[in-house]
Amino acid sequence: MSFNIEFTGEFVAFFSLAVCAIVGAVMALNFTKVVHMALSLAFTFIALAGLFVVLEAEFVAFVQVLLYVGAITILMIFGIMMTKHQGEGQEPSRPLLETLGAIGCLALLGILIFAIRDANFPADSAPLPLDTTREIGKLLFTQMAVPFELVSVLLTVAFIGAVALAKREEDPQ
């Protein structure tokens, strides 16, 4: 691996945000309390939003904060609140599963990094339009109108389904 890295502003931003994201993710797996885990992952999501900004994807970054941090994490915390979490941390460990899982994940990571290193990416090319948010809006309502509508239908169906699933069933008596 070559280390002739230019310390551009982008690199510095990427590096610090990447460290934040990885630390958040690793911490999330290390905490024992579920709420801590959720909050730690929220931290990772925010770091990712920052990375999106670095990647000139301001709208995606905005949605990321809104959706992941604002909606999904909160949803999960609601889920945590609605269920009991007694006896966390002292549950019996599953050594076989954990070892195999670790080996498998590391192997996959190795393969992925190998593939990334091996791949031949083109040099930086044409820049994106400046006002990406406007362009995304245009695309969403012209070229991507049908997928957009389909996704909204999907969301509606999913939420109705979620309500139906989580609703307490009526007592037959």
Binding site: I72, M76, G79, V151, L154, L155, V163, A166
Partner: peptide, 12 residues
């Protein structure tokens, strides 16, 4: 969007 839908159904 799909992730949001998935999370909602999953939690339900």
């Amino acid at each position: 969007t799909v992730a949001a839908a998935e999370a909602a159904v999953g939690v339900a």
